[in-house]
């Protein structure tokens, strides 16, 4: 698997990260090594094998859909880095 600067930039974008030059170099080498090792899965014949995204088939334990109290606004905002007691504050996005 060839990991080049273009792919790293694409993954940074997907991951919503900005890497330093040092991190880029480091992760280029690491990803190359790790993905080469993961590529051994190619050897396995998985034709017709279903995908399993969860350990068990009976995934959902449902409960009655009853209205219950939820967290207060005060609690929800408590850990926000910036808020005005009513809303989260984010930089302006519409000119």
């Amino acid at each position: 698997m060839e990991i080049d600067a273009q792919l790293i930039a694409y993954l940074e974008e997907l991951s919503c990260l900005i890497l330093s030059e040092r991190e880029k170099q480091r992760l280029t080498d690491d990803l190359r090594e790790i993905l080469n090792s993961m590529a051994r899965l190619e050897e396995l014949n998985t034709t017709g094998v279903p995908e399993r995204s969860h350990p068990f088939d009976n995934v959902n334990a449902f409960r009655e859909d009853v209205v219950q109290p939820s967290l207060s606004r005060e609690h929800i905002l408590q850990n926000a880095p910036a808020h005005n007691s009513e809303f989260f504050i984010a930089p302006k996005t519409v000119e």
Binding site: L41, T46, E51
Partner: peptide, 10 residues
């Protein structure tokens, strides 16, 4: 491929 491998492991 990994999800299929997971099936085989299970």
């Amino acid at each position: 491929k990994a999800l299929q491998t997971r099936t085989l492991i299970k």
